[in-house]
């Protein structure tokens, strides 16, 4: 089992905390799935409703690792400043680094991402960059100081699954010793199982669970699929082939024509 900046995870599910019908349902999803990591964010706080303080108490009581994000940041400066604010509030070096470059797909601005990753790594952050499956970008992120890479499965919130199987398979093969997490775009537990079967080390998702009819049950389904995919990858999947081969032995078959 690979580690995440020196931390090993009991469950390879990283679960987002947004869009749940209620805080109770959110907590139940974490409890049922035993997800090891919760992604969180920062937003403006008002002294009138102090909504962030209630949320802080909720996530603190989950007893999981917190992975703050820089969601919504479109520039290096925004992302770096947000990361510093998140480090202070959540008391963690971990940062899920997002530098968004395009609104329709929320595709990362990989140029800004690499620059922000370098700045934050040099400042002691442990960066989890939300990136694409581009190998050149991945290599630059590693040189910038990242020890974990998080390529997208599909655009955030789309539920499309693994859009570029070739690219993701190639990435896994090209970086056999790097911790790789599929982040975003998954819609079904089978997508998560597929990611793990490809040899990825964890899966990060939010919408597919939060927007399910029964989020807690769906969280459990994802956690179970991730475990199955992980076991399958470790067991050594067979090589696919185009033509059929009989599984029942031919030798000894009766002549009955």
């Amino acid at each position: 089992m690979r580690d995440f900046y020196g931390t090993t995870l009991d469950c390879m599910l990283m679960l987002g905390t947004a869009q749940y019908p209620s805080p109770h349902v959110l907590a139940d999803a974490f409890k049922r799935s035993a997800a090891s990591v919760a992604t969180v964010s920062l937003r403006r706080e008002s002294g009138r409703d102090r909504a962030g303080q209630d949320f802080w108490h909720l996530i603190r009581d989950l007893g999981v690792h917190l992975l703050p994000n820089t969601a919504g940041c479109h520039t290096v400066k925004e992302a770096v400043t947000t990361a510093h604010m998140a480090r202070e509030v959540f008391n963690t070096k971990w940062i899920k680094l997002e530098v968004i470059g395009e609104e329709d797909t929320l595709q990362p601005d990989v140029f800004g991402l690499v620059e922000a990753a370098r700045i934050l790594s040099e400042d002691g952050f442990q960066v989890f960059p939300y990136t694409t499956e581009d190998l050149v970008v991945a290599d630059k992120l590693l040189h910038a100081g990242c020890e974990v890479l998080m390529p997208w499965g599909a655009p955030i919130g789309s539920g499309l699954g693994l859009n570029n199987l070739f690219g993701l398979r190639t990435m896994r093969a090209h970086f056999p010793d790097i911790t790789l997490v599929i982040d975003a775009g998954l819609g079904l537990p089978s997508h998560a199982a597929q990611a793990m079967e490809l040899g990825f080390d964890a899966v990060l998702l939010n919408t597919a669970v939060a927007k399910a009819g029964d989020p807690a049950a769906m969280a459990l389904a994802f956690a179970t699929a991730i475990q199955a995919g992980h076991l399958a990858a470790a067991a050594g999947p067979m090589c696919p082939r185009d033509m059929a081969t009989p599984s029942t032995p031919v030798i000894g078959k009766a002549f009955l024509k």
Binding site: G16, T17, Q19, L42, R44, F55, I59, F90
Partner: peptide, 8 residues
């Protein structure tokens, strides 16, 4: 002034 909030 920013506080913890839900995130994905």
């Amino acid at each position: 002034i920013l506080a913890p909030m839900q995130g994905g």
